[in-house]
Design a binder for these strands. Structure first.
Length: 898
DNA sequence: GAATTCTGCAA
DNA sequence: TATTGCAGAATTC
């Protein structure tokens, strides 16, 4: 018969391990959770792996133990538990209670003693015991039936020890482990041992004499005189140390072993706690397990349980569905396409939810007459009387543009909704939403396609799987719409959501679809030109270094510069020497190789990131670049751009700026470039109502010159360019949430001087100071900050007891309302421009946004009108206490339009 | 192959 | 130890 198995966990040891092994995790409300998370992950892992019949977690009690009574310095000098960990103890116990796992705690005894007693008891009963701990002390308990699982590096690796393994690894028996400690002592518990005896000597002695007692009775046999003396002088201390290190195995415990029997956990309570601590992956795991258990007949059927799908494959069925939709007036849609090309993607499947119960699914390859189908879908999606809801509607728009279909009457997007509710999340998938709001576990793309080399092409996914996947999604979206809408209302985000973000999705879709023209020939010529430059520089650098190496590798470059050439290392990174521009510039005159490396860096950056990058991603059909504009990435409300990032095309240095010549308007068109002048400082003037700052903008002064004049106390005419550029840095600093350290770094001046600059700024701009203090205060009280349109960002960092984290929170509190309000403003402008151009049937198109700048591709004959419209929409976007100013220019290329 | 680090580009 | 992003190359796991 198989033995019963018990797992005994050293709670204190394990939670400590988990705490230090994991990066800090925090909930929205600012509770630290990393130790709980790590502990539970580890717990689940051992339970899964060893399937115990019994389980218990032992904790230390605060009360002093017999060891303290015997030796009052016991555990003295031990560092107090950091509060970030301390606050996690009680929550962990709550979770264990929800798991219905027995907690073993007895006053006057340490967890070790309870574990030892329990293990010996179980051994006698014929159980197999597994002790999980991060502490080697427990190894003294190892035997054939009592095994010790010790955490190795991190938390996921456990090493298993029985008596044999202990002997193998440490050359002593488990019980002799105690003797070792008697001699070596233990710093962390403040057990003295014999001074001067370390691990090596202790092992040697115990191997020879067998035990501490035998050793001190036979000291005359120790040949080394010094060692003998040490042992003889510390006899009592060795004995005492051994006793302190001995785990007690006969604690009087009034406990029934049956209490430790594994039980069904309290599901609802557990999910509630996991939700509170935002352990979404654990929620997933539990729900996933339940699904698997209930399954029996395969995953598909289970996943289908909540679905009621009607498949549409002919006209009559489609029209039947259409009737149903018209009755309901609202539909949720989600489609999937072959991954080919943005301008000719082919839709494979379309799922539609109508009301709570019904899902329809159209498999495009099942439908006989494709033209007929497209016609019907067009009629449906363009029907202005039917409201459309989706998750990531921009994607849906793009899926249907190639068919000449424009989805009309879009009323909700759950992805954007959740983004406004909390913009700090790392992902906004339907799966996440389902877990968070409904506790449901869905298929995701990974389940569908697999990962790595086994990843399937979308075309290769079995049809039924695709159908289930999409129908699940529309069902969930439908369920979530109301909840999210209410939340949006509650947070006073209605205007931002319905007037700005939702219409913006369509603007972004159109920008992506349109793309921007690039000059392929020019790029190819540049590629050759830059390759030659790089080859020459490489050769030159190798010559100067007198060896070949990978110049791109900071590690190898560091070795050449700082070891071989003996240049002074200015700065270090986590892994070695820093070789960044600042460092290299300080070394500029120290060696001829440095200027070459700087040039090499500049040239390779342009070639690899921009020239090669752009050529790789050019659309072969349109000859244009269709960047992806993401609406739910930034925490402040800005838009981000990827594949490629068109928001960081070089401009500061002429060499890089030349690249802008490859971005052009098509024949007989111009690029109009319109950018806000000082939008962030204008926002700051508006929010803070600072007299000086307001006046600066109302009078349309050069704001940096004005700032210089204030800080340095000279008339504006006497401001030198050096003063102006310092003032400019201060203005930047103000927007970012200033610190003297940061300003000093940026201006390359002393921290003291930077502090003076800041102080004189805040003195002159007193209301700015007041605003900064106020916003930090509000952030601390409420836990979030708001933009002009109530866009919200939570700041759990701001109450941290860690100075760095808290300071970060404070800077973010100051910066987000400014950066975020500027983002609100340009988004309004984008929606307005798009609308005006569309309604006026202009041929011009908005094609790019770069945070404070809009780019429109415009036919020559519309130039004047469109320029006026763009300028007007931008300047009138919001009514502030200062005017919004827009600089506008146009030309055949982006280079010329700036 | 995925994740992380360093570097550097923009507003 | 200044805000928000994205990407390429090297390196590590």
């Amino acid at each position: 018969m198989k033995k019963d198995r018990i797992i005994i966990i050293d709670g204190n040891s394990l939670i400590n391990r988990a705490f230090y092994a994991l990066p800090p995790l925090m909930t929205k409300e600012g509770h630290h959770t990393n130790a709980i998370y790590g502990f539970i992950t580890m717990l689940f892992k051992v339970i899964e792996e060893y399937q115990p019949q019994y389980i218990g977690v032992a904790f230390d009690k605060k009360a002093p133990t017999f060891r303290h009574k015997e030796f009052k310095e016991y555990k003295a000098g031990r560092k107090k538990m950091p509060p970030e960990l301390g606050e996690q103890m009680e929550p962990l116990k709550e979770v264990l209670d929800a798991l219905r796992i027995y907690r073993i705690e007895i006053e006057g005894f340490e967890a070790d003693d309870l574990i030892g007693t329990l293990a010996k008891y179980c051994e006698a009963k014929g159980f197999e015991s597994l002790i999980v701990t991060g502490d080697k002390d427990a190894l003294q308990l190892a035997s054939q039936d009592t095994k010790i699982l010790i955490t190795k590096k991190g938390i996921s690796n456990l090493e298993i020890y029985d008596d044999k393994k202990v002997l193998e690894d440490f050359e002593v028996t488990p019980l002799q482990f105690i003797d070792l400690k008697g001699l070596m002592g233990d710093k962390s518990d403040n057990i003295p041992g014999v001074p001067g005896v370390g691990e090596k000597t202790a092992v040697k002695l115990i191997k020879e004499f067998g035990s501490v007692e035998n050793l001190i009775q036979n000291t005359q046999q120790i040949s080394a005189a010094k060692l003998r003396e040490k042992i003889e002088d510390n006899r009592e201390q060795a004995i005492l140390s051994k006793r302190l290190a001995t785990i007690v195995t006969n604690v009087p415990v009034a406990m029934e072993i049956e209490e430790l029997k594994v039980e069904e956990f309290d599901r609802d309570r557990l999910l509630e706690l996991f939700k509170k601590y935002e352990f979404n992956s654990l929620i997933n795991k539990i729900i996933g397990n339940e699904k698997r258990e209930n399954q029996g007949e395969g995953k598909e059927q289970e996943q289908n349980a909540n679905l009621c799908i009607v498949t549409i494959s002919h006209k009559e069925a489609f029209e039947e569905m259409m009737k149903e939709i018209k009755k309901e007036k609202t539909m949720v849609l989600k489609s999937i396409t072959e991954e080919k090309n943005i301008v000719k993607n082919k839709v494979i499947g379309l799922a539609i939810a109508v009301g709570e119960k019904n899902q329809y699914y159209i498999d495009f390859s099942d439908y006989k007459d494709e033209n007929e189908l497209i016609g019907l879908v067009k009629k449906l999606l363009e029907d202005d009387t039917i409201e459309k809801v989706s998750h990531d509607i921009k994607k849906e728009l793009l899926h249907f543009y190639p068919y000449g279909i424009e989805i009309k009457n879009i009323v909700f997007d759950t992805m954007i909704g959740e983004y406004l509710i909390d913009p700090s999340k790392s992902s906004y998938s339907i799966k996440e939403l389902a877990v968070q709001y409904l506790g449901e576990n869905l298929l995701d793309e990974e389940d569908l396609r697999g990962t790595g080399k086994n990843k399937l092409e979308i075309e290769a996914i079995p049809r039924e799987k695709l159908q289930t996947y999409l129908c699940q999604q529309v069902r969930i979206i439908n369920k979530l719409t109301k909840t999210l809408d209410e939340k949006i209302k509650e947070l006073q985000l209605l205007e931002l959501y319905y007037e700005i973000e939702l219409p913006l999705a369509e603007v972004l879709a159109s920008m992506e679809f349109k793309g921007i023209q690039v000059d392929k020939h020019m790029l190819e010529d540049l590629k050759i030109e830059f390759k030659e430059k790089i080859d020459n520089l490489t050769e030159e650098i190798y010559r100067l270094a007198e060896s070949t190496f990978n110049i791109n590798s900071p590690k190898q470059l560091g070795e050449i510069l700082f070891d071989k050439l003996q240049l002074p290392p200015i700065k270090k990174t986590k892994t070695g020497y820093s070789t960044n521009v600042e460092v290299l510039e300080k070394l500029y005159d120290k060696h001829d190789i440095i200027p070459k490396i700087l040039e090499y860096r500049q040239v390779t950056k342009i070639k690899t990131t921009y020239i090669d990058g752009l050529l790789n991603i050019m659309n072969p059909i349109t000859g244009r670049i269709h960047s992806n504009f993401n609406q739910t990435v930034t925490t402040t409300g800005r838009i981000s751009s990827t594949e490629p990032n068109l928001q960081n095309i070089p401009i500061k240095l002429e060499l890089g700026r030349q690249l802008r010549k490859v971005f052009g308007a098509q024949q007989d068109y111009q690029l109009i470039d319109a950018d806000y002048s000082q939008i962030e400082l204008r926002v700051l003037a508006h929010i803070s109502e600072d007299k000086n700052l307001l006046e600066s903008f109302v009078k349309d002064q050069d704001v940096h010159t004005r700032t210089a004049s204030e800080i340095f106390q000279v008339p504006m005419e006497e401001v030198t360019s050096a003063m102006r550029s310092s003032a400019k840095a201060v203005n930047f600093g103000i927007v970012y949430g200033i610190s003297d350290f940061g300003l000093a770094e940026n201006l390359n001046i002393s921290r003291y001087k930077a502090k003076q600059y800041i102080e004189s700024y805040l003195e002159k701009y007193a209301s700015v100071q007041k605003y900064m203090e106020e916003t930090v205060k509000i952030a601390k009280e409420k836990g979030y900050v708001l933009t002009l349109l109530n866009r919200r960002r939570y700041l759990p960092e701001i109450t941290s007891r860690n100075f760095n984290i808290r300071s970060f929170g404070e800077r973010v509190a100051m910066n987000t309302p400014i950066q975020g309000s500027a983002a609100d403003i340009i988004k309004i402008a984008m929606v307005k421009v798009y609308k005006r151009l569309k309604e006026g049937n202009f041929q011009a198109n908005l094609i790019l946004q770069v945070h404070d700048e809009l780019i429109v591709e415009c036919p020559n004959y519309e130039l004047e009108t469109v320029s006026t419209i763009v300028k007007e929409c931008m300047e009138q976007a919001m009514d502030l206490k200062v005017p919004l100013k827009v600089d506008l220019a146009y030309g055949p290329t982006w280079y010329d339009a700036k």
